[in-house]
Design a protein around this nucleic acid. Structure first.
Lengths: 150, 150
DNA sequence: GCAAATATAATGTTATTACATTTGATGTAA
DNA sequence: TTACATCAAATGTAATAACATTATATTTGC
């Protein structure tokens, strides 16, 4: 369905106005779906993102400040997100030896196991997208989004 | 900059994985910019969206349930958003005569004036996007997003 | 070396979100 | 009509987000 039909707005001022609204609407739509996939595993989207950042560097530690920098939503509080993950024993927090201000965070094996399970769920979701856009179209869409942020 | 550089993740599993991450990152990027544009006017993005929905129907009233349906973020509480807007005298709330369960909401002239000011701000922002994507590309991007949600 | 500036994470606070529940009105079927 | 289900909005709530502030540690300029 076109964005006009989805939000019942007949016209937009120009293609950029339409794009902004469409982008936010579609992103909410995806985020919602992702949230519901994560719900049975008692993870929020942000917690999931942090875990994936940590897995990307495993077995190296990542500082809280690096997590903040790399999060999709910069404004979330990485410190408190890490708190939650520590409580669930999905990550481990240790003082950084070379800089006592910083805190090193590493994903635990429990965290890696959880991510492995979620990889399957995520792959299923990606297959659904595959039915809607070809690989080339998905790539093209990504490239246009990159250019929008330039 | 490509999404890989932006979030310092070297590779994605496939074009769909890359797309999902890119979509959320870009949407947050736009939402952040929009939020900062709205801040001097003491409006949240959601409140702004509600006002624009109401202007779209002006001078006809819109029910709270219709607002919920048409909001970009379905989960926000339209009832409480309307509350905030009533406090600022940007909208007016009256009992729907044909259905006493429902509530009619109409934008006030103060609300319309505010939106008019914001139209200028918004247009400036759209000009920035214009430097990054052509009209055709913006349209194409919108269409790909539409297809993603099909 | 030392004071000031900056960096890093944690914490405080208020508003908002994501639901669940409640209150009241309307529709529907016996 | 009278139950009973459904619908619309409001309200309760716990968690989270969006900042601002604080507490330490490090860096920089003198």
């Amino acid at each position: 369905m076109s964005i006009e039909t989805d939000i019942k707005q007949p016209t937009f001022r120009n293609p950029y106005h339409r794009l902004i609204v469409n982008l936010m609407f579609t992103s909410n739509w995806v985020a919602n779906a992702q949230m519901h996939l994560l719900k049975p595993y008692d993870l929020t989207l942000q917690q999931y993102n942090v875990l994936r950042i940590l897995r990307g560097q495993y077995p190296n530690p990542v500082k809280v400040s690096d997590i903040t920098e790399r999060m999709l939503d910069k404004m979330s509080n990485a410190s408190r997100l890490v708190d939650k993950l520590v409580l669930k024993k999905l990550v481990q927090r240790t003082e950084c030896p070379s800089d006592r201000r910083a805190v090193d965070v590493v994903i635990t094996s429990k965290g890696l196991d959880l991510l492995k399970k979620l990889d399957v769920v995520q792959a299923d979701y990606e297959v659904e997208l595959n039915n809607k856009l070809t690989d080339e179209e998905a790539l093209q869409l990504s490239q246009l989004l990159d250019r929008l942020r330039r």
